[in-house]
Amino acid sequence: MSDRLSHFTLPPQWSTMRTAAKLEKTTGREIIHLEKGDYGSSEFKPPGEAVEALIASLKQGYVRYSPGSGIWELREELAKEMAARGRPTVPEEIIVTPGAKFGIAATLLLLLDDGDEVIMPDPGYPPDEFWARYLRAQIKHVRFRDPRNIDTEHLESIISAKTKLVILNTPQRPNGQLIENTAEIAAILSRHPHVYIASDEIFSKIVYEPFKHKSLANYEEIRDRTIVIDTFSKAYVMTGLRIGWVTAPVSLAEKYDILLQNSFTNVSTIIQEAALAALRAGEEYHGKLLRNLTRKRNLAYNILTGSKALTVDNAQGSFYLFPRLPEGLGDKECVNHLLEHGVAVVPGSAFGPAGAGSVRLTFTLEDEKLIEGLEIMVSVIDRLAGR
């Protein structure tokens, strides 16, 4: 086995999912799955137009190869989408990928060599760290002043001549908070023209009132070095279809195309047709999606704030909450106790050392199961804390 891969293990953030699935299979017990980063309720569906387009394109025989960077009509629509967000974009800057995760992998593969430094948040998204370690890059974690603001003094202090890439995600995984001080971050990065920026924005369209998403790619002074990674998974309830995109300057987009055509060739053509239809579905779809998510977010938040032991910030975006555990209760210990009571969540330490002492949960289940799971969680943790 390759030395680069031999020392890695399965991702820790999914260990709870594997354990919960094994418990269900071996004991027959039902587990309430708050750990999955997916839509758990059947009320969440892709746009009807996307489903119809997928079926129609399959019937019409769209089962051949398509251009590696994506069908032109989809790239045109995605360029319009990015321009509407404040990042002027031409179709040649769009690369269609099999999900955002591949976009992350491709970005690190294209930019990092042995010994290069990459800066990423803590807590953050574990695949960022996996690919950095696979490429034998040196990882530096940037601190937060608070859950919504990067410590910009710390960021500037850890940028060196070897720094090649800064990765940020907003709305954040795992805590559902927006990064608010993007202007400060852009000002610092503008002084370091050798550094690329990867902006992971997979929840960019799931932001709750009155908050607004602001992309680092909107800042002209760093736009030519900023790569935006996004997906149809979260905004259009298409997690299993595996389609996303990267927005990058043309010179870099051409390099993505080389990598993509020498790996997966192209995203399934019928799925690209579904994505194109989803983009054209209109704002009514997103309005309904956000209303449902807002209601479930508030339902979950209200139950958790009834705990005497937990503290939690309501999500500004995403479909995650990241409650903090009481002093002295470890996140892995808490996860194990909750599994014994039929509830699965993810330990915060799976997302980095700064996540220790919290747990991540998803609030997209049917109301009945969401309420049941959260009430069990509050009861168990309050009892463990002696509250």
Rank of each mutant, 00 (worst) to 15 (best):
V246I: 11
L58F: 13
T19Y: 11
E201S: 07
V335E: 00
L370F: 04
R18M: 08
I371Y: 02
Y256R: 03
L168C: 10
P174D: 02
E153T: 13
L361N: 05
Y125G: 03
V207C: 04
I202D: 12
P98T: 11
L23D: 08
A274M: 02
G28Q: 06
E366Q: 07
S379E: 02
L276G: 01
E49V: 12
V195N: 06
L168K: 00
I167F: 07
I32G: 04
L34V: 03
A344N: 05
F319S: 05
A56N: 01
Y219A: 09
T226C: 07
L168Y: 07
S2T: 13
G124N: 04
V380D: 01
E333H: 06
I202P: 10
D38G: 09
H154M: 03
E73Q: 05
T362Y: 07
T269P: 02
R383E: 12
S69Y: 13
K25H: 15
R291L: 14
A275C: 01
E73D: 09
F44H: 09
D331E: 10
H341D: 08
L361P: 05
E184L: 09
I227V: 06
S233Q: 08
G348L: 03
G103R: 01
L216H: 00
K308G: 11
P123C: 03
F144G: 04
I139K: 00
K36I: 15
L135A: 06
K214C: 10
H286T: 06
T16V: 12
A350F: 05
T89W: 01
H337C: 11
N262W: 08
